[in-house]
Nucleic acid binder design. Structure first.
Lengths: 212, 212
DNA sequence: ATTCTTGCTTGACAAGTGTCAAGCTTTGGC
DNA sequence: GCCAAAGCTTGACACTTGTCAAGCAAGAAT
């Protein structure tokens, strides 16, 4: 009996704690998601906790309750953003049965991303730059960067495999190339350059055959 | 006599005005240069006019005297930064008599830049990201980006010409590649990654022969 | 039914922000 | 040498910022 009591009670307590932690974490993510709206609109430099709160259903105090400070909140945002981003092209990679199909699927997704998720992506570039100043961001940013590199590498590997070839460039160079092109296209697109997206797609189309 | 009076006096006045303008502009650049110190240290988001003033020999009021507002100051900084940057590799390009010489000169300059001018370059990436949010920056940033693309193109053209070959990639893709690699190396270098610079140099060394 | 904990709101605080006006000093033309 | 303009300093303003403490509401535990 005593055995059972000391065996079960802690287990229940532990389970309750896990549940509480999960709920706590779910709320953090809700708040981070709300914060991402404002961050994507204004950028890191111009975003304050109060502005975030006003553009959301929450009061500014909640953010302090769930996050130790502003950096903690934004780190959580960055980490959450990652999960959304990194699998973007995986479905195209999985379903494509030919180079042409993969190319078109990839290009279409790239264009759609530029068109519809420009705000989230400019935030990513903003935060990656912030990481050069703010050590607190570095770990997460470097990790995401690695994930994105791996994502591009998956697309390219499939592209090569579909014609039984091997990639001739390194993952780092390949990611640098696509990321650089995307970044430039995004800036031009945000500056209302009508040719930004077509030019970008043209570049990618021209570059793809040269990677293997 | 009347002719002479109305002919000379305005000319003198005009000359005086030009002189005044030049002096005014020289002072603006002095101030911009001082501001760049602090901006490079803290980044756009964390830099205030007062902080800039405190880290310099000027008082915060002077900045308001010479610049209509904060954005005006920072635009001036960006524009001034450009002039310094864009000719960085020209001497190497002009003097190199062989591919090996050009490669080594280019790599050495890249490494030195990463090592010694990390702060200025992270500021550039910061401001380029800001341009995605702040329309006032866009014109200057896009212009600098074009200049940097041209700078890379000059290096690559020379590299190709030294063995009588032609470049196979577009200026945009080439710039994207080098800029992407540089950006990633810079972040890693700032995060105290010892391998950042060697890895970067290795990538560039591997990539160069593939561009033509 | 009662305490106690958790989640959240509100209001306040000190520090810092961009901006600007009033005044001081220096300079250059007469 | 005098005076007006230019250059610059200082201090103040209205406002925003991150942070936090005091208090309220609701649900769980006893």
């Amino acid at each position: 009996m005593a055995r059972q009591a000391t065996g079960v009670a802690p287990r229940v307590a532990a389970a309750a704690e896990v549940l509480r932690d999960e709920k706590f974490n779910a709320r953090r993510i809700e708040l981070a998601e709300a914060a991402l709206e404002t961050l994507g609109e204004l950028g890191f430099a111009r975003t304050s906790l109060r502005e975030i709160a006003q553009n959301s259903a929450f009061t500014h105090g909640v953010f302090h309750y769930y996050f130790s400070d502003k950096l903690d909140l934004i780190c959580c945002c960055v980490r959450h953003y990652k999960a959304k981003c990194v699998t973007r092209y995986d479905e195209v990679v999985a379903s494509a049965q030919s180079r042409a199909e993969l190319t078109e699927g990839f290009l279409a997704k790239l264009a759609a991303t530029l068109e519809n998720e420009a705000r989230m992506h400019r935030l990513w570039y903003d935060l990656r730059s912030q990481a050069m100043f703010e050590p607190a961001f570095r770990k997460d940013v470097l990790e995401i960067d690695k994930s994105l590199e791996a994502m591009i590498w998956r697309v390219a590997s499939r592209y090569a495999a579909l014609e039984d070839k091997r990639l001739t460039t390194s993952p780092a160079a390949l990611y640098a190339l696509f990321d650089g092109l995307f970044q430039s296209a995004l800036l031009r697109h945000l500056a209302n350059d009508e040719k930004a997206i077509p030019d970008f797609l043209g570049e990618v189309r021209r570059v793809l055959p040269t990677i293997c």
